[in-house]
Design a protein around this nucleic acid. Structure first.
Lengths: 117, 117
DNA sequence: GCTCCAGATCGACGAGCATCTATATACGTA
DNA sequence: TACGTATATAGATGCTCGTCGATCTGGAGC
């Protein structure tokens, strides 16, 4: 019988051996990963991550009109980013008259945070 | 002089008052956010987040040939995702003969992890 | 030399994204 | 009712992304 180094990883697998620890990946972890990737994707834009950062630093709700001058983008574009964050379940908003106040949903980042640490 | 409720947030700002806590955003935090957004973006694809998950679960280095059968994508596509993770500074690789072994760079996710918690 | 194999790169294609301007919605005020 | 203001939506545009098949690279063995 040949020694390990004379077999390719594929041949090793066929022979019941491996070039490294056998890798398995249960469906539970897969679904978990899908949800976290959605959150990470929403945070993957610099503007959106900064938005979340600002909202987190300012406990409570922040008016949209305070957010617009912070970034060098148009108001509709900012609104678009806020919608993306809302769709990802990271933030939510409350309307008071003409103004909209956004805030980070508690525990929205919990799952991703736990996985990262 | 009018009372607060009769002023728009913009008028309040002009008058030195505010509809909410004044929002400031120092450049230090901005640069910080840019780096984290880059990492989050790399983790924002389900395949890539699962790749990092697998690599983290298997301490040490995992052979690419073990990773390919885990996902329903072609080998070039997997290689592309690994490159994205490498470009983001999340993983690195080592070649041993024909095979390439990937591993997560220690502390690569530290900054994002700290921010999230 | 030549051949085989693992992995990376290339080129192309369709889908999605970030951004803008223009417009709509909805509320407050006169 | 009519007007102004804050935010959201619509439509267009150019760029980026994920994916594939085909090809390239370079190490191992004959």
């Amino acid at each position: 019988m040949l020694v390990d180094l004379e077999l390719s990883p594929k041949q090793k697998r066929a022979a019941g051996e491996r070039c490294c620890e056998p890798v398995v990946y249960p469906d539970v972890q897969r679904e978990h990963a899908l949800r976290m990737a959605e959150v990470a994707k929403a945070l993957g834009d610099p503007i959106r991550l900064q938005l979340v950062d600002v909202l987190r630093r300012h406990a409570g709700k922040v008016c949209v009109c305070e957010l617009v001058p912070l970034f060098d983008i148009s108001q509709p574009t900012l609104s678009h980013h806020l919608k993306k964050l809302r769709d990802a379940g990271i933030v939510d908003s409350e309307r008071q008259g003409l103004w909209a106040y956004y805030y980070v949903i508690p525990d929205a980042l919990k799952e991703l945070s736990a996985w990262l640490s």
